[in-house]
């Protein structure tokens, strides 16, 4: 058996609304598998179903050979879970948090003490093991949670938005751990994210939107779907330029809000040609090598919406507060 997770036609309804709408996929042993999509796409819901925290409305899923409905206890023993929000007890020390977890997962005392020392070392928290978690920074808490999720030797580690709210340095640090873990322990990692750059770390990515998987491939495979380079430009008269592009270069441009977008082969060579053909018409122009952002845009017709909206709102909020 090479597939550690198999999901068939999973559906989850919340009072008539399908948060997960017929999802099927497999994850093979030792893989880093990512769910990419905007907030509310159904990523966390799917993960909660696999972790037996929610019961599916229909469909079935098998994890480590165990049916999630028939044997939830067995499934829980085989998984480690790191939630989006911290689930540590902040009034206990790092060590106590690990110890309680170990007891809940029925790890014998001696083995537990050894593993605690090992995981604390791995996430570089040995020196702070007897401090109350309340005194930890966001990054330290996340590291401790990953350590805790590993202490019972799970077969699959679930990470729900593992690096949300962390600074870039901590983010890349956490990714180092994840890769290290896979190499050392042969662990399968299943994560959700709405960061495109983070998804690049995965072996395979399922792009999920409105409760459905719209694409599933390696990052390179997904990017190949977009085709060539993408040129985005802001012009004075979108319609006229669009027609012109069609006539002169037989390129069909797409309109997105303020801008025109077109796909071409070698973008860096094509831009000078464009500019000389349309003197005085182009107000701004940029070249994009295909990224997962573009894949998402192409598949769904929009950007990962929350990211765009949120950052604007946040910026506003910050200004107001000062």
């Amino acid at each position: 058996m090479t597939n550690i997770i198999e999901v068939r036609e999973l559906v989850k309804e919340f009072s008539g609304v399908k948060a997960v709408n017929g999802i099927s996929f497999e994850v093979s042993r030792g893989e880093i598998f990512g769910f990419l999509g905007p907030n509310g796409a159904g990523k966390s819901t799917t993960m909660k179903i696999l972790a037996t925290l929610l019961k599916p409305t229909s469909g079935y899923a098998v994890l480590n050979g165990l049916d999630i409905r028939a044997n939830p206890q067995g499934v829980r023993q085989s998984i480690g879970m790191v939630f989006q929000e911290t689930t540590l007890d902040e009034k206990l020390t790092a060590r106590e948090n690990l110890m309680f977890h170990g007891l809940l997962y029925n790890i014998p005392g001696k083995a537990l003490r050894e593993r605690m020392t090992k995981v604390l070392g791995m996430v570089e928290l040995t020196e702070r093991q007897d401090s109350l978690v309340r005194t930890f920074s966001g990054g330290m808490k996340r590291r401790l949670e990953i350590a805790r999720g590993l202490i019972h030797y799970p077969k699959v580690l679930f990470l729900d938005e593992p690096t949300v709210g962390l600074d870039p340095q901590t983010r890349s640090h956490i990714w180092e751990y994840i890769h290290e873990l896979r190499k050392q322990e042969g662990l399968t990692i299943f994560l959700t994210t709405h960061y495109m750059d983070e998804a690049e770390n995965c072996d395979r990515i399922a792009i999920i939107d409105h409760g459905q998987i719209v694409a599933l491939d390696t990052p390179a495979g997904l990017k190949a779907q977009v085709g060539g380079d993408l040129i985005r430009m802001v012009v004075k008269d979108k319609h006229r330029i669009k027609e012109l592009l069609q006539k002169e270069f037989s390129l069909s441009a797409r309109e997105f809000a303020e801008e025109l977008q077109l796909e071409t082969g070698k973008g860096e060579e094509f831009i000078p040609v464009l500019i000389s053909k349309l003197p005085g018409q182009i107000q701004a122009i940029s070249l994009h090598k295909p990224t997962l952002d573009d894949v998402f845009l192409k598949l769904t017709g929009r950007e990962i919406r929350e990211e765009v909206v949120n950052s604007k709102w946040l910026a506003k909020g910050r200004r107001w507060r000062k």
Binding site: A51, L53, G74, R76, Q77, F83, L88, E90, Y105
Partner: peptide
């Protein structure tokens, strides 16, 4: 409210 309940609920205990 502070999340710890999830840690308990996802553990393999009844």
């Amino acid at each position: 409210e502070f999340g710890f309940l999830k840690e308990v609920l996802v553990a393999p205990v009844p």
